[in-house]
Write a protein that binds this DNA or RNA. Structure first.
Ligand SMILES: NC(=O)c1ccc[n+]([C@@H]2O[C@H](COP(=O)([O-])OP(=O)(O)OC[C@H]3O[C@@H](n4cnc5c(N)ncnc54)[C@H](O)[C@@H]3O)[C@@H](O)[C@H]2O)c1
Ligand SMILES: NC(=O)c1ccc[n+]([C@@H]2O[C@H](COP(=O)([O-])OP(=O)(O)OC[C@H]3O[C@@H](n4cnc5c(N)ncnc54)[C@H](O)[C@@H]3O)[C@@H](O)[C@H]2O)c1
Lengths: 230, 230
DNA sequence: ATGCCTTTGTGAACGCGTGCACAAAGATGG
DNA sequence: CCATCTTTGTGCACGCGTTCACAAAGGCAT
């Protein structure tokens, strides 16, 4: 397939074709009217604009369960990311081989970053250590951080942080799951209500559709509230 | 602190206070004018609306490096998620203990889901197996999936999928990283150009600021294009 | 060379989320 | 019981991203 139309690409990606064309136009990618986009050239343009044509050395800090899994993940190398080093504070870990790389002690963090020209750091330490590690990374010259610890990191301007919080991912799923269940329950309730009922909560349910199952007063069940705080 | 104002909360979260109040109003959470929100009641309301007051059994499929790390992750339990079972296709894994749980063979997937009432599944298998695993999960009654494999999953309507793609997270960081570097380089170029130059690419750079370093024609360097496809 | 047909690139309109600003509510003190 | 002061809840306007729709461009057949 030497060429594709915006229509085909849009269908494959599940987006609107106009949006796709406009997005392409931002990076100056010229297609050919009446034909479409040259696949090879397009891929090259997007790769380059996304920074995929260059090699990005990254450092992983905190080689526990997660850090070790990340170190051995093949999906990074194929996208141009190279693990330049593994760092852990635990002396017992130092010198160990993980995914073919030697784990180095935290003391070596700064020289490693400077020697390898690392600008992207991955934090996989416990939450308590994350901010301190972050500070050292930034101080040493790292300007992009991928954070797996469940903490909000404070960084100076110019430094980008992306946080991957798996609990939140699950929470979002659970939220929609509950919503699905709630809607079904509501349908059943509505049917039951139609059959014969005399209360007044129906008016409330209509007036405020987003607030399902609003407790009147303070929850009748006296269970402890806070599951929320991390 | 028995009560908080929307202003305080907004400052802490780094958002606009009006937005925060409006969001709260959607879930019918009543504050008290002139005082603020009762912390305990608010936490309870949000927890309940988010589905955090109930226990969610989850099943993890694919107990490799990543799956094992997830199985042992304490952050799930504290948010109300309980690992109901670990599933792997590898017979050599079956029966092994991982994070205090016994790994079960794929054959036991359906009974496990039905017995435990699992509605959330986590896929940590290789990309090639993900769609097949997904199909089986959905067939068995799972309606929410957290997918770590780098594949787009096709699911019937009513099933939610969230994808965690670590490579893309890194790519986003790399993109901004490149942009930062590009801006610096452009400043230097502009200075150099001001000093004394005779080309014409400057006009292009002004006309289309989003398209930095646009190659005229097809890149002079004959390097292979495609780093992009997964 | 000419006309037709396909597909791009983009101006204009639409819709939605965000932020502003203020009236209403309620607590608190006199 | 009334006045004052704080803070909520929300109508309204603004801005941005998305989508529509179409003129211009270019290939291709005749
Ligand atoms: N395991 C998961 O699936 C998972 C999922 C989501 C989030 N997380 C988060 O990722 C982080 C790591 O999880 P884990 O399961 O790998 O934990 P872990 O305890 O297995 O590993 C943490 C590692 O960090 C090292 N460490 C501690 N302090 C350090 C410091 N100051 N500098 C360098 N290294 C240090 C420890 O020696 C240990 O090897 C945690 O914050 C956790 O909440 C983990
Ligand atoms: N390791 C990481 O840090 C990381 C990061 C991002 C994404 N991922 C993705 O997560 C997935 C797992 O990564 P990993 O490093 O743990 O790989 P892995 O090879 O260590 O583990 C994969 C596991 O899945 C099992 N498996 C294979 N087919 C199966 C099937 N049909 N049913 C059930 N189990 C099956 C295998 O037996 C193996 O135990 C991959 O798709 C990978 O691309 C991994």
């Amino acid at each position: 397939m030497p060429t594709v139309s915006s229509e085909e690409l849009a269908a494959a990606a599940g987006v609107n074709s106009a949006k796709l064309r406009k997005d392409f136009s931002y990076l100056g990618s010229y297609g050919t009217r009446g034909v479409g986009y040259d696949v090879e050239y397009l891929v090259y343009q997007i790769s380059r604009e996304l920074g995929l044509t260059q090699d990005w050395p990254v450092v992983i800090v905190g080689i526990g369960n997660l850090g070790a899994a990340l170190a051995g993940y093949g999906g990074f190398a194929s996208r141009g990311f190279r693990v330049a080093g593994l760092i852990d504070a635990d002396r017992a870990m130092t010198g160990k081989q993980v995914a073919g790389l030697t784990v180095r002690h935290t003391d070596e963090l700064e020289p490693l970053i400077k020697e390898s020209g690392v600008s992207i750091g991955v934090i996989a330490t416990p939450a308590g250590a994350a901010q301190a590690v972050c500070n050292r990374l930034v101080e040493a010259g790292v300007t992009s951080i991928l954070n797996f610890a469940p903490t909000v990191l404070n960084v100076p301007e110019g430094v980008d942080v992306r946080k991957v919080d798996l609990s939140i991912e699950l929470q979002i799923l659970a939220f929609h799951e509950q919503r699905k269940a709630g809607e079904e329950a509501e349908l059943r309730e509505a049917e039951a209500a139609a059959a014969g009922q005399g209360g007044k909560p129906a008016a409330d349910a209509v007036a405020r559709p987003a607030a399902r199952k609003k407790r009147t007063g303070q929850g009748p069940d006296g269970d402890v509230p806070a599951v929320m705080p991390a």
